[in-house]
Simulated assay, not measured.
Amino acid sequence: MKRILLVRHGESEWNAIRRLQGQADIDLSERGRHQARALGPMIATFRPGLVLTSDLKRAANTASLLGYPDATREPLLREHNVGDWTGVEIADLIAAQPEAYARWRAGTFAPENGEIWSDFRARIRSAINLALADPAETVLMVCHGGVIRAALDVALGLAPARIIPVGPASLSIIAFPTKKARLEVFNATVFSPILDAPD
């Protein structure tokens, strides 16, 4: 049975201060490196036959710390482009534009110069199709919280407004026993789950 393992990168330097990063190429914090190393043994038990990572360094470095330094860098797995909101602190966005932020989080609004949800979702559909076409039964994708939300929307029709933020260095699994996908795991970590993770 085909399985796609979706791992969000460990905490980044901007996650630590709750700054929206989108496609800004921000590295892991020291805590994020620790989180990624800690998750490695859990991921190894699945023995992925194909490992893909976003080409942004916080994801690629997470893949390396998980034990996959030669993971294929796949630009399709880049985070949602948040346009003019890049680098803005989440608390400031919520204070200044609460409705816009809530709509963005629900996939119904894009900030200026940002990626609209339908385009982002289509990009992630292409990444999932790439994984499904590969002969490997288990595919590991090391990516971003937005990518995981979009993957759940693509595979399961689970709208982003119905999903809590994906925690850093967490594992979600989508299985394909038939053409209909099922969610086997969501937001699993080796430490206490973070239920209010920054986007």
Rank of each mutant, 00 (worst) to 15 (best):
L140H: 05
Y68R: 05
F191M: 10
G67H: 09
S54K: 11
V190D: 07
R18N: 08
P168F: 02
S118E: 14
N61E: 15
E74S: 12
L156K: 12
P135S: 12
R31Q: 13
R149F: 00
P111W: 07
S29C: 03
A38W: 00
P98D: 01
M1K: 01
V166T: 13
V190N: 10
A175T: 04
V147G: 09
H80S: 07
T53F: 07
A150H: 06
S118N: 13
I174R: 01
V190C: 13
A100S: 14
W104E: 10
G83M: 10
E30P: 02
D199S: 09
Y101S: 01
T72W: 11
N61R: 13
E184C: 03
V142T: 12
R8Y: 07
D84N: 14
G87V: 00
T72F: 13
L93C: 02
L156Y: 04
T86Q: 14
I26Y: 01
P193A: 07
I164Y: 03
E74D: 14
A161L: 12
R162T: 10
A95D: 14
I43E: 11
M42H: 11
K180S: 11
P48C: 03
V185A: 07
L56V: 03
D25K: 08
A36Y: 07
D27T: 04
D196W: 00
R19P: 02
R121M: 04
R33E: 15
C143S: 14
R162I: 00
P168L: 05
P177F: 08
Y101D: 00
D92M: 10
P193S: 05
P165N: 14
R78T: 09
P168W: 05
W117N: 13
A44T: 09
G49N: 09
A155W: 09
C143Y: 04
N61H: 15
E13L: 14
A127F: 06
K179C: 03
P165S: 10
D134H: 15
G107N: 09
R123P: 06
I164V: 10
I94R: 15
I148L: 04
D25W: 01
A71K: 10
G146C: 03
